[in-house]
Amino acid sequence: MPWRPMTALDLNQVQSLADAIHVSHPEDPEVLAERQHLYPEGCFMLVEDERAIGYALTHPWRFAEPPPLNRLLGAVPSPATTYYIHDVALLPIARGKGYAAQLTDRLVAHSREAGFDNLSLVAVNKSQVFWEKAGFRVVAVPDLGPKLASYGPDAALMVRDAASL
């Protein structure tokens, strides 16, 4: 599998990928580095032919309270109530090859092993259809609308039971 654990040495490549892929959702280098530092077992690089073509940042969090974009977390909460998928980013050349589905399977397995009942994320950039195929469903949470709007006009909070599928 071309996904491998991310290390601190990968962060310059992660920043370059993030800047190229998430033009509408920029994040500072400190934010990306903190995610990798706080929960390295949830951070991955996608490498094909020795070239970084994607990355993923995930960590435990509080369900229905997605962290604001481009903000430091400070710490992983205890107790955490969800395994949160902060970002799965692939260059166009990596899309359509099954890499995101491979990673999703790995994240679901990790969430189960870590004892989480669910995984959650905020779908952006028309990714909701992909996440629905991966077993996620949109969940409505009262008063979350303004925070979701900061992620973009099509943002949707999604959840998946860790035991499903």
Rank of each mutant, 00 (worst) to 15 (best):
F63I: 14
Y84Q: 14
H25S: 13
G115S: 04
L121G: 11
R106A: 12
K97G: 10
V76E: 01
I93R: 11
K147E: 15
S24W: 01
D161V: 08
Q15H: 12
F136C: 06
L144D: 04
H22T: 04
H86D: 07
W131P: 02
L32P: 01
N12Q: 14
A101Y: 12
N12H: 13
I93K: 09
S111R: 00
E27G: 04
A163Q: 05
G74W: 02
P68F: 03
L103N: 13
K133C: 09
R137G: 09
D28F: 08
V124C: 12
E50A: 15
Q13W: 05
Q128V: 11
G145E: 15
A8V: 04
Y99C: 06
H25C: 12
F44S: 02
P60F: 10
F136T: 07
M1A: 10
L11A: 08
E30D: 14
P79V: 03
G96V: 10
L144H: 03
V122I: 13
Q13S: 15
A101H: 15
Y83P: 13
H110P: 00
H25M: 15
S150Y: 09
A8Y: 01
H22Y: 15
P26Y: 07
P40N: 04
V14M: 11
L38R: 04
Y151A: 05
H59V: 08
R35T: 03
A94C: 13
C43Q: 05
A64F: 01
L32V: 00
W3Y: 02
G54L: 06
K133W: 06
W3K: 02
D28W: 11
R35V: 05
Q13V: 05
A163P: 00
Y83I: 13
L103V: 13
K97V: 09
D161I: 05
D49Q: 15
V138C: 09
K126S: 15
S164N: 01
S150P: 06
Y151M: 07
P153R: 10
K126A: 14
V108P: 01
I21S: 03
L9N: 14
P2E: 08
H59E: 09
F130G: 02
A114L: 05
A20V: 04
P146C: 08
Y99A: 06
E30N: 11
P77N: 11
V88Y: 08
F63P: 00
E50I: 03
Q128E: 15
G96R: 12
A20P: 01
M1E: 07
E34N: 02
E48P: 01
P5F: 03
G115F: 03
F63M: 09
T81L: 11
A18L: 04
G98D: 08
S16P: 02
V138G: 00
L121I: 13
A140P: 00
N118K: 14
L11N: 13
E50T: 12
D154S: 06
G115M: 05
T58G: 01
V138F: 03
A33E: 07
A75E: 14
E34Y: 01
I53W: 11
P67K: 07
P60G: 13
P142I: 01
P60D: 07
R106G: 05
H86M: 00
L91H: 02
R51P: 07
N70P: 04
T58C: 15
